[in-house]
Design a protein around this nucleic acid. Sequence first.
DNA 1: ATAATTTATTTTGATGTTCAAATTAATGCT
DNA 2: AGCATTAATTTGAACATCAAAATAAATTAT
Lengths: 137, 137
Amino acid sequence: MKVFNEILRIEEESLKKGEFHNLSVREMHVIEAVCTANHTAGSNRSSDVAHALRISAGTLTTTVKLLEKKGCLIRKKDTADKRIVRLYATQKGQRADRAHQKFHREMVLSVLKALPSEETDVLIKALKKLEAFFERL
Amino acid sequence: MKVFNEILRIEEESLKKGEFHNLSVREMHVIEAVCTANHTAGSNRSSDVAHALRISAGTLTTTVKLLEKKGCLIRKKDTADKRIVRLYATQKGQRADRAHQKFHREMVLSVLKALPSEETDVLIKALKKLEAFFERL
DNA sequence: ATAATTTATTTTGATGTTCAAATTAATGCT
DNA sequence: AGCATTAATTTGAACATCAAAATAAATTAT
């Protein structure tokens, strides 16, 4: 828990600096989810993104509205079914996502550098087991 | 991150059930911090607990006020320096803390059961390194 | 075809969290 | 005694969040 809380704190602080200091962690995660849905053929409907983030549809609407104002996301009505709102990241949103990914990558890399490679293998294996374990719950 | 977020979610859900369902994660952590300060000769002054939890003094005041109403904590003015407010857990608060500790212990135990013991050793070693690594930042 | 139902999203109203700044109260220093 | 410092609380504002009501579009049933 201590390690985890440190990571959360560092993530928050890293966001406060740099180009995207006006984005909260939550907003960053919304952008991330939209970008992920966009690249990986996951669904980018408003409700699906809300579901992926485990927040209510209403909450997502307000966050997205703000992110639209901040120039990171845009909404588009689905042409076939006009009830559906699809979410896309702007250039700026994509840049923010890449910066955020980079932060995570660098964090992991610095950790890996501090660990002998045999231990890295075990750590990864253990984390995969944890993932499977918690997913079952 | 996925594993960590799962853990957070599970912690939240575990709190929603059982005797202490009316306590939020934040409130539980305040109780935990107070109990820890009480057993381990750490400081239980209001400001120290706030600092330990990395929240502002004002935020702690309001949370503690609520927890007092819920019968989990009590405040006492320090007799020597009456500016200082010292925080103590009631019987109920202590019971809540023990229940929460038990949740964490059981979570860890179930994970350990799923892991061969050599891997457990390496995992612990790796987590200690992570802890040291993040603390340096 | 049109009325009723279902689905996707947004709006609304209420509650909770959080902080920074102003305030209050107690102590320490000169 | 008077001033500066310290500890805690209160206040006011900004967000976050949700459930429920409202809106809009599509589908189904009559």
